[in-house]
Amino acid sequence: MPSARELLDRVERHCRADHTATRLRQIVLADLRAAVPFDGHVFTLTDPVTRIGTSPVADLVGMRLARLPELIRLRYLTVATRWSDLLDRGTAATSLRIDTGGDPARSRVWREVLHELDVFDTATVVFGDRYGCWGFLELLRKSPRAFDPTQLTTLAALAAPITRGLRTALGRTFVAEEGELAPAGPAAVVLGPDLRMRGQTPAAAAALLRLNPPQEAMPPIPNSAYNAGAALLAAEHGVPVGPPWSRVHLGGARWLTVRADRLGTEDIAVSLAPSTLAERLDLFGRAHTLSTREAQVLGLLAAGLESPHMASDLGIPEHTANDHVKAILAKSGVRTRQELLSRALGIV
């Protein structure tokens, strides 16, 4: 079994490598299993602004896929160990047994789902920084053995490097790939109050299937749609996580925005449409750690302004505007303004 220091060193090396977000999570989970044993896991990316889940890597200890909407709905409605609440209170990691004072029955998701799966304890780690919330990890144990404080300290120490690794991996998705995929069109599904699908638009099936991991034998409804719907329900129940929308990478330079809203008194409409330029620019800036001023400059570059006009709009000297552009190029790993805008805007 590796020591906490050895584990941290290994994870930091993984997070500095050029892994995709999915591969990084898989490697980290493999290392974690040897140091902090667990029986199941949910390692989910989140939109950095809304904190809504998008793309999971999960093994739910034998749970039937038909119960997935129920689990997601209850996870958003349960404040105990919820990733957004950990972030709000400045706690990197906690466990179900600790957060409920030793009484997991105080957690609704445990009472109604996890208890039936013989889950004894869970440990949750949140990955957030000044640029947003990039994901969370939940480890599940079926054996009657709780996560101890030493293990939670080990998990908390991993939060900072994993946060950087996930954010950097997301930034690399803005690099155009060879053989770009066709643009994604708008689609929509209708979910009931239990988040089960009631209907979809004709264009939805193909678009939704693209959002599911290809190895998953799941109905063609992505977790991002369930999560957006669950976020809407959480807000309506007075326990909000964030606005019910998220941006999801669809491959190549494509990003979709998934958004939930009420359709009548019971149903929830979830729309999936190509992310707007503003949504892409915001995500690009956060992933590449742009300052507030640098993000403003990037927006003006995307609007077609040259340095003199940017300087005038921002009320700064032209040489300062050029310095900001140079800083953006350096952080984005590109040499020219054209290449920068190609990546940020998804123009091939």
Rank of each mutant, 00 (worst) to 15 (best):
7 L>T: 07
7 L>V: 11
19 H>M: 10
26 Q>C: 10
28 V>N: 06
29 L>Y: 10
32 L>G: 08
34 A>M: 07
36 V>R: 09
45 L>V: 04
46 T>D: 13
51 R>Q: 10
58 A>D: 11
59 D>S: 14
59 D>N: 12
64 R>M: 09
65 L>V: 09
70 E>F: 03
71 L>D: 08
81 T>K: 00
83 W>P: 02
87 L>E: 08
88 D>A: 14
100 T>V: 07
103 D>Y: 05
105 A>S: 15
115 H>A: 10
117 L>A: 07
118 D>C: 09
119 V>M: 03
121 D>L: 04
124 T>H: 08
125 V>E: 01
129 D>E: 07
130 R>Q: 09
138 E>C: 06
140 L>P: 03
140 L>D: 00
148 D>V: 08
154 T>A: 08
156 A>G: 09
157 A>F: 00
160 A>C: 04
163 T>N: 11
165 G>V: 13
170 L>N: 08
178 E>D: 00
179 G>P: 09
181 L>E: 15
183 P>Y: 04
184 A>P: 02
185 G>P: 00
187 A>G: 09
194 D>M: 04
199 G>H: 08
209 L>G: 15
209 L>D: 06
219 P>T: 14
220 P>E: 12
234 A>F: 10
234 A>G: 00
236 E>L: 09
237 H>A: 14
252 G>V: 05
255 W>A: 02
258 V>H: 01
259 R>E: 15
270 V>L: 12
277 L>P: 09
277 L>H: 07
280 R>I: 06
281 L>A: 12
286 R>M: 04
289 T>F: 06
294 E>I: 05
303 A>Q: 14
305 L>R: 03
307 S>H: 11
311 A>L: 04
321 A>T: 13
327 A>P: 03
328 I>N: 01
329 L>E: 10
331 K>N: 04
336 T>K: 03
337 R>Y: 04
338 Q>C: 03
343 R>S: 05
344 A>F: 10
346 G>W: 00
347 I>L: 11
